[in-house]
Nucleic acid binder design. Structure first.
Lengths: 327, 327
DNA sequence: TTGAGCCATGCAACCGGTTGCATGTCAAAC
DNA sequence: GTTTGACATGCAACCGGTTGCATGGCTCAA
């Protein structure tokens, strides 16, 4: 047992105030049960002693700990920080603390993180989870789980629906005279990637455009960079990237080859996380990830309060943001 | 008391295995005290029942919870995510979980977060803390605290020392013929800002350069943008910004006014978080913030193990990274 | 005056583990 | 064959709160 210097417990306060331990407990959690004078006396004693309720002990006896966990594939991917911040703020507003996990896109690590967290949180929010569906359902049995950008029936989820933005982008490109377009993929296990790719595919078909899908395993600058040769070889005139980070890599690759954007080639990103940081400023699909974080936390509260409403499925709509990488 | 479905406790395992509760506990925490056969029998029973040790109960009786807290001023500032990820990884390697707090640059909120966390962690890491020194020392009395980019004597700290990078930058600019330079400040309470500003001041003096210090309250794109008029009015030919984000705003402001970089004006950032994302790619000062995160966690382990070595002070050196915004 | 009922507080069990000490067993040593 | 000691396991207290129930004092009405 590690003794913390100066840890003052409920018993010491009780003794100082001349009451039973239970009254001290009530003074802090159910003051209406006590005379105002008693409460005042206890609080005074607590103050002079410097008493602070022990969170762990309380959690043990009540079974609630006011903690949430949030797991993301990559903190450093600019898509996530706004989401993390929003979730953190929303949790903070209800006096909840949030554990953050970084799975590094690795399902095994994600699984380990969930296991570590699950014992000390009331619920978990998994963003862009790479876990097998069965695993998610198993965990959801133990604790409320809310998903972001992962679509598992029976688990409350917030989905940033890029498909209408993507559709809009494809139509926009068709109107501008493009005939053959490329889609540069993202992480293979990603719901977002699947949903974006199929939206592009469908819209391209409807608009009578030829589509080349360029595989890529991860979302990264390098992935975009190394896709450039293939999308050029395929004879396309525009690339729609899985996300802005990938699009940025594509822009860099094009510049290396002396191809100017948008005159020589057009590029469309997704998620609008880079703002007009790229050169030229990137045409992209909006996606307010902070709203997703906020919404996920409030869904979590719903789940924690009532046992019902397990199958919420929120779609956040997106739209094309035209900047200067498309012609 | 909230009853979790299917919570199996040590007592049930004990009964199933026909041993005392204490043996079950030992099978998991001190197996060497038991016969291998007994351990095996207990683990088998635990497996079939699906027993998972209760983290909270363990924390209560041992006084250790294997949790750390990390508080940053702004998760969305690109300086922090790599640090967060590194800290998270380092913690993970030792089976620690990390709470993340976002103070939003607000000392009051930071204080509240510390208060919320301190009861359920073994130690706290405060990055770029805006807390009054006294407050930090008070908290450090209760739990080990490690600071990043905040210099308080008596508290272990990791400082990214931008001063030699800044000095290098000023000399570099003097060599290129600049006579009057501007420094665009960052958050007023920030140690980094003070240290960078004074390094620039000193180096400018030594190099015989005239210096204009342009105040700014926060680190943001907008702060940089709105500083442009003043740095131009002051007659400077180059601006050294508190960080890359601010520098990016300056670049945008210059472009709005039709001033080309680096021909018409030079810009230097700090922290190297944008890579060559800006246009033109930004000359900046390196700072591997992920190393700071990693180091902070290992300092924390030191602090948790031994009561001594309270006054560690690590300086991480930096250097000028010349790209294309300087002439 | 007495009994009913309410309310403030105390009592003690409980949450789920951990751990110092006691006990019992068995083997080696005398 | 008895003593000694090492070692495996049990016992029970403890970590610091929470909470259902018991108790006792007081008020109010009959």
């Amino acid at each position: 047992m590690i003794k913390r210097r100066g840890t003052v417990t409920i018993s010491q306060v009780a003794q100082a105030a001349g009451v039973n331990r239970s009254s001290v407990s009530r003074a802090f959690t159910k003051p209406y049960m006590l005379t105002p004078e008693t409460v005042a006396r206890i609080k005074a004693a607590a103050d002079t002693l410097g008493y602070v309720p022990n969170h762990t002990a309380r959690a043990l006896s009540t079974g609630r700990n006011s903690n949430l966990a949030l797991i993301v594939p990559d903190v450093a991917n600019p898509f996530f920080p706004p989401m993390i911040r929003a979730a953190q703020d929303a949790a903070d507003a209800q006096d909840y603390c949030v554990f953050l996990g970084n799975s590094n896109e690795d399902p095994t690590k994600e699984d380990r993180l969930v296991g570590r967290f699950i014992g000390q949180v009331e619920g978990l929010i998994l963003a862009s989870s790479r876990l097998p569906e069965k695993r998610i359902l198993d965990y959801a049995e133990q604790r409320p789980i809310v998903l972001i950008n992962r679509d598992v029936a029976g688990v409350p989820r917030v989905l940033i629906d890029s498909s209408n933005g993507m559709t809009e982008a494809v139509r926009f490109l068709a109107d501008r005279g493009h005939k053959k377009i490329a889609y540069v993929s993202g992480p293979s296990g990603s719901w977002s990637n699947k949903s974006r790719r199929s939206a592009v595919r469908k819209a391209a078909q409807q608009a009578g455009l030829e589509l080349y899908v360029c595989p890529a395993q991860v979302s990264s600058f390098e992935a975009g960079l190394s896709a450039v040769d293939r999308i050029l070889d395929a004879g396309t005139t525009v690339a729609i990237a899985f996300d802005d980070v990938t699009a940025h890599g594509i822009l860099a690759g094009l510049e290396q080859r002396g191809i100017t954007v948008p005159e020589g080639f057009s590029v469309v990103g997704c998620d609008d996380v880079l703002g007009d940081l790229t050169h030229p400023p990137l045409t992209t699909i909006s996606s307010r990830s902070s709203e997703a974080g906020d919404l996920a936390v409030s869904l979590m509260y719903d789940a924690l309060r009532s046992v019902g409403l397990k199958d919420a499925r929120y779609l956040l709509q997106t739209e094309l943001v035209v900047r200067q990488t498309t012609k």
